[in-house]
């Protein structure tokens, strides 16, 4: 398989007024095209920092990130980054929200607009294109946010604790929905989460980070007997619990 993202020896040290803090220590991994990789780790271990570095929003102290062989410097146009909340702009209609990324990138042409429209049609938002975010349910809003990112045709999707602002039930449903859409669009995904179940239910591979300073404690391939299960169905499998226990032990959570 083609290697799309390569993270090489990333270390990150923060300078603050009261001292120095090492967040990440020599993190290396790679992601192949079409793969779904999750990074789990205890809260505050620097997972989100790692994702920001991959996205080019933060420059690492050491190491580098290669996207399709090119070093990432600054925010790359080939990366789609989704945050915790949908962050739809209340004063823009759903269509205007969906093209926001294109607009900011100065990529809004007849072709890209048509592509966005086809996404809205494919994922059931076409009838709502002139509605405003406050008129949509949480799940619909999440879809609109996803289309906003899909519209810029990113090579790789970064999900930063995405959906964690939703309540649990909605989150389970949205996870299924988003997973389905991302698989249909054949996207490569790197997700950061503190939720072990979520990482097992969606990923092909889980990278477990240690506590700060974070290094890779373990990488686990996730295989289910049936490869076409949805995240919700995966949760019902026998293997699910085994994976959960292994990762749980690895995380070494203390209260």
């Amino acid at each position: 398989m083609e290697e799309i993202l390569k993270v090489e020896q990333i270390s990150q040290t923060y300078q603050a007024e009261n001292g120095e803090l090492t967040a990440l220590e020599e993190i290396s991994f790679s992601v192949e095209k079409g793969e779904f990789v999750s990074i789990v780790g205890p809260s505050g271990c620097g997972k989100s920092t790692l994702l920001s570095i991959v996205a080019g929003m933060i420059r690492p102290t050491y190491g580098r990130v290669l996207l399709q062989g090119e070093p990432v410097e600054g925010i790359s146009p080939h990366i789609g980054y989704m945050l915790q909340r949908d962050n739809l702009l209340e004063w823009r209609s759903i269509y205007q929200n969906a093209v926001l990324g294109l607009e900011i990138r100065n990529m809004l042409t007849r072709e890209t607009a048509a592509y966005t429209e086809s996404l809205l049609k494919a994922y059931g938002l076409w009838d709502f294109r002139d509605k405003y975010p406050s008129q949509l349910s949480g799940g619909m809003r999440q879809r609109a946010a996803l289309i906003r990112t899909l519209a810029i045709k990113p090579e790789i999707f970064l999900l930063d604790e995405a959906f964690s602002a939703l309540d649990y039930q909605t989150r389970l449903a949205v996870t299924d929905d988003v997973y389905h859409i991302l698989k249909l669009e054949q996207k490569t995904i790197l997700m950061v989460t503190h939720d072990i179940s979520e990482s097992i239910s969606m990923s092909d591979r889980v990278i477990v980070l240690s506590r700060r300073p974070a290094h890779i404690a373990r990488t686990m391939e996730i295989h289910f007997t049936d490869p076409d299960l949805t995240p919700l169905q995966r949760r019902e499998q026998r293997e699910f619990q085994e994976y959960f226990n292994t990762i749980w032990r690895e995380l070494d959570v203390h209260v």
Partner: peptide
């Protein structure tokens, strides 16, 4: 976070202001 969302699309300071 809304500003950060714009930044993930590479928004510059001017766009942050006018769009968000």
């Amino acid at each position: 976070e809304t500003i950060r969302m714009a930044q993930t699309f590479g928004a510059n300071r001017r766009q942050e202001f006018t769009k968000i």
